Amino acid sequence: MSKTITFNELRRLKDSLPDGSTHRIADELNLTVQTVRNYFGGVNYQFGKNVGMHIEPGPDGGLVVLDDTTIYDMAVKILEEQNQAEA
Rank of each mutant, 00 (worst) to 15 (best):
S2G: 07
S2C: 05
S2R: 09
K3N: 09
K3V: 02
T4I: 15
T4E: 14
I5Y: 07
I5V: 15
T6K: 10
T6Y: 10
T6D: 11
F7T: 11
F7N: 13
N8F: 09
N8Y: 11
E9K: 14
E9C: 05
L10D: 08
R11L: 11
R12I: 04
D15P: 01
S16D: 14
S16R: 13
S16L: 11
S16Q: 13
P18L: 06
D19T: 04
D19P: 02
G20A: 11
S21Q: 03
S21I: 06
T22Y: 15
T22F: 14
H23I: 11
R24L: 13
I25R: 09
I25F: 06
I25K: 08
I25D: 09
I25C: 05
I25L: 10
A26D: 06
A26P: 10
E28F: 10
L31I: 00
L31E: 08
L31C: 01
T32I: 07
T32N: 09
T32M: 07
V33Q: 15
V33D: 15
V33H: 14
Q34M: 11
T35F: 01
R37A: 03
R37P: 00
R37S: 08
N38F: 08
N38Y: 10
Y39I: 01
Y39N: 01
Y39F: 15
F40W: 03
F40T: 04
F40N: 04
F40P: 09
G41F: 01
G41A: 04
G41Y: 02
G41T: 00
G42N: 10
V43T: 15
V43D: 14
V43W: 06
V43G: 10
N44G: 07
N44T: 07
Y45H: 11
Y45E: 09
Y45G: 03
Y45C: 03
Y45D: 09
Q46W: 11
Q46N: 11
Q46K: 14
F47L: 12
F47T: 08
G48T: 00
K49R: 14
K49S: 13
K49V: 04
N50D: 14
N50S: 12
N50P: 04
V51G: 02
V51F: 09
G52S: 03
G52M: 02
M53T: 13
M53E: 10
I55E: 06
I55W: 05
I55M: 07
I55Y: 05
E56N: 12
P57V: 05
G58H: 02
P59Y: 07
D60L: 07
G61V: 02
G61A: 02
G62E: 04
G62R: 07
L63Y: 08
L63T: 04
V65P: 01
V65R: 14
V65T: 15
D67T: 11
D68Y: 05
D68A: 07
T69N: 07
T69P: 06
I71Y: 08
Y72S: 01
D73R: 05
D73C: 04
M74R: 12
V76Y: 02
K77R: 13
I78E: 01
I78D: 03
I78F: 02
L79A: 00
E80R: 14
E80M: 07
E81V: 00
E81W: 03
E81G: 01
N83K: 15
N83E: 15
N83D: 14
N83M: 13
Q84T: 01
Q84V: 00
A85C: 03
A85L: 13
A85V: 02
E86H: 08
A87F: 06
